[in-house]
Amino acid sequence: MINYAKDYSIKKMKKCFNIFLKKIDSIRVGSANVMLLSNISLIYYGKKVLLNKISRITVYNTKTLRISAFDKSINNIIIQSILKSNIDVNPYTKDNDVFVTVPLITSEKRTKFIKLIYKEGEIAKVNIRIVRRDVNTKFNNMYLKKNIDKDSKYKIEKIVQNVTNDFITKIDKTLYLKENYLKNN
């Protein structure tokens, strides 16, 4: 039972952590990165589709991304979707491809991005604490129904708290590294 609680907590908290990583990896810092366009979606033949599913996105140079759509007729739709996403980039077409120029980052935007990553970090921490609460509630109910004894309940709570602390520490370390990267690039 104790191992199940630990494994379940790790699995759920790892999912929260990975979502957090994906969100902060998509925050650009003045250089072209394909993750910048990872969350862009558009309507293609009546269905909402991610841009990277209907095109190949590559780094053309340090400030430009190249989008080679599998269907060249949707280049204008791609441009409109990128503009609607409010990621402060300048898309244009050239040679049947869409290019996205990433502007230089200002100190004001740098500060904005740092605030954004910390906001995402807080959201991830809250989600991890929600997992902790759910696991503890589940095993507390089992204790109340006499399915587990008091010692097992406390051991589970202690293990779940240790797993929670580990993930909170991982988030804090990731935030520290990302903040330094944003400040120095």
Rank of each mutant, 00 (worst) to 15 (best):
I54A: 06
L50M: 06
M142A: 07
S26D: 03
K119D: 14
K112A: 12
R56D: 14
P91Y: 02
V98E: 00
V29I: 15
G121F: 02
I40V: 14
N18A: 05
V135H: 05
K94W: 09
I77Q: 08
L83N: 09
N180C: 05
K153E: 08
K11A: 08
N61W: 06
K125Y: 05
Y4G: 03
N147C: 05
L42M: 09
N86I: 03
L42Q: 05
T106R: 06
D166L: 00
C16F: 01
I156F: 02
S73D: 11
R132W: 09
I79W: 02
K11F: 05
N162Y: 09
D97L: 06
L144D: 06
K72P: 07
T164A: 08
N141T: 15
L36I: 14
V100W: 00
L51P: 01
K11R: 06
D172N: 12
D151M: 12
P91G: 01
K153I: 13
Y154H: 13
V34F: 00
P91D: 01
K94V: 04
S68P: 01
L182Q: 13
K63V: 11
V49A: 02
N127A: 12
I57P: 01
V29F: 15
D95W: 10
I74E: 10
T101N: 08
I19Y: 11
T169V: 05
K158Y: 13
S31M: 04
V131R: 10
K150Y: 08
K11L: 09
N76S: 11
